[in-house]
Design a protein around this nucleic acid. Structure first.
Lengths: 240, 240
DNA sequence: GGACCGGTACTTGTATACAAGTACTCGTCG
DNA sequence: CGACGAGTACTTGTATACAAGTACCGGTCC
C-alpha cells in the first residue's frame, strides 16, 4: 500500500509556467491587451505549447486572460464590473470571518501579524514589499478565525482587483495610510471588539476600492470599455 | 476591424467534456474514489486525450478531482474541511448580498422568484428538479441585489457542498422544509426587513449544513479521512 | 485613389507520439 | 508457503503534427 504523500519539491512544468505568467500579468509586466501567443511563450520559456496552453486555460478561467479561438490570446483589460465583484466578495468574506474569531486568539499568529505591521510601517518600505505584506496581513486575519482556506477563493477572484490596486499604489497617498488602517483593525481584533473591527475593515477595503476608481479616471485605456473589445493581433501593442 | 462578438453556438470540445464530467461528479454518477483514466474517458467520449486532460485539470482546480502524476486521476472524496469552507463562503456572500438590496426590487425578478417557489412547493416535486429550483432561487436572490456574478464564484467553490447536499436530499425530512424556509426568506426580502432576511437565510443555510453532517455519519466512506488517502488503481472501485 | 480578392502567415483546437514513473503480476528462490 | 524481484501494463507530463479558421498584405481591377 503506497501511502506516499509525495510533497514533491519539484513542481510540474505547467505549474511553473502558470505561476510565472500569473505574476507577470498581476505586476503589469504583461499589461492589459498584450498578445500572448502560445508558440511565442513556449519558445521564450523553453517548453512546449502544452504547459503554456494549459496555463492560459487556467488564467482564462480566472478572467486574467481572454482566449479567442483561431484569433489569439490576450491579457484581459481591467473590467470594472469584475473589480466590483471581487471587492464585494472580498468584503463579504473578510467581514464574515471577523465574526468567527475565537475567544482566545492564537498568540503566535498575533505576534506574526504585529511583526508584519511593524515592517509595513518602515519609512523606506518598498511598494512591492508593502503589497506582499498587505497580502500576508489579510491572509493572516483569515487564519486567525480558522478560515485560512477561504483566502484561496478570494485570491482567485480578486485578480482584477489586484492589478488595479497595484496601479493605485504607485501614486496613492502612500502606503502609510493603509498601514495605519491595518493597525486599527488589528487593535480592534485583539480587543475582541467585533463591531469596531468590522467597521475598520470595511472602511479600509472601501478606501482601497476608491483608489481603483481614481486610477481608472487617470488611465482608462487599461480598463475594458463597454464593448467586447477584440484586440487586433499585433497592431499597436497598446503599450510601450 | 472585426468586432465579431462570436457568441458561438457550438461549444468547444473541451467545454462539452468538462460539463459532462462535472455533472457526472456532482450527481454522484461518478462517485468519490472513482478512477478517471484520461485514455478511457477519451475513448468513451469519442475524443482525444487533450480535451479530457484539460477538463480534468479544471476539475482538479475546483477540488472535485485529484490528479496524481504517473499514478492516476480520481474523483475526490468529500472533504469535510472543504465542505465547511464552502459553507462559510456561501453564507458570507449570500448574507452580504442581502444588505445590498435596492429600495425598489426588480418586479420581474420578484415574479420569477415567486413562480420558482410555487413550483418548489408542488407536492409531487422531483428531487433533481427541486435541486435545480433551489439553485435558481439562490442565484436569483443574488441577482436581486446586483451581485449575480458572485454566484459564479460560489458555484465554483461549493462543489463539495453540492455533492453532500445531493446525498442529503435523498433522505432529508423532505424538501418541503427547505421550501418553507425559502418562502420565509423571500417574504422578509420583499418587506425590506434586512435583519429578518439575514436571520432566515442563516438558519436555512445552517440547516443545509447540518444535513451534510447527518449524511456523513451514515456514509463515511464517501468522505475523506484524515490521511491523504491515495486510492489504489483499479482495485475495488469503491462503489457499485 | 479606392474597393475587391486571393495568398500567406499566423492563431488556437485537437490528435497523436514519446518520456518518465508507478503499481500490479507472476515467476523464482529460499 | 512466503518473500522477493524483474517484467509489464498502465498512468500522467510533455512534445510534436495536423486541422480549421482568422487577419493581414499586396496586387489587380475599376
Amino acid at each position: 500500500m503506497g501511502l506516499v504523500v509525495r510533497a514533491d519539491g519539484k513542481k510540474s512544468n505547467r505549474r511553473a509556467v502558470y505561476e510565472t505568467l500569473r505574476r507577470k500579468v498581476l505586476t503589469m509586466e504583461l499589461p492589459p491587451g498584450s498578445a500572448l501567443s502560445e508558440n511565442e511563450l513556449a519558445a521564450a520559456l523553453g517548453v512546449s505549447r502544452t504547459p503554456v496552453r494549459e496555463s492560459l486555460i487556467l488564467l482564462s478561467e480566472e478572467g486574467l486572460v481572454q482566449v479567442f479561438p483561431q484569433v489569439g490570446s490576450f491579457v484581459s483589460r481591467v473590467d470594472p464590473q469584475k473589480v466590483a465583484d471581487a471587492q464585494f466578495l472580498r468584503e463579504a468574506v473578510e467581514l464574515a470571518s471577523l465574526e468567527d474569531l475565537p475567544a482566545e486568539l492564537d498568540p503566535d499568529l498575533v505576534a506574526e501579524l504585529e511583526d508584519n505591521l511593524a515592517r509595513q510601517r518602515r519609512p523606506d518600505i518598498d511598494r512591492e514589499e508593502f503589497f506582499a505584506l498587505d497580502e500576508a496581513f489579510h491572509h493572516g486575519l483569515l487564519r486567525l478565525s480558522g478560515h485560512a482556506d477561504a483566502w484561496t477563493t478570494v485570491v482567485a477572484a480578486k485578480g482584477h482587483l489586484d492589478r488595479a490596486r497595484r496601479l493605485g499604489l504607485y501614486d496613492a497617498p502612500s502606503p502609510v495610510e493603509f498601514a495605519g488602517q491595518h493597525v486599527e483593525i488589528l487593535r480592534a481584533v485583539r480587543e475582541g471588539d467585533t463591531a469596531l473591527a468590522r467597521q475598520a475593515m470595511r472602511a479600509h477595503l472601501r478606501a482601497v476600492f476608491e483608489d481603483v476608481e481614481r486610477i481608472r479616471a487617470r488611465s482608462p485605456e487599461l480598463f475594458s470599455s463597454n464593448s467586447a473589445s477584440l484586440p487586433t493581433r499585433r497592431n499597436v501593442v497598446v503599450w510601450e
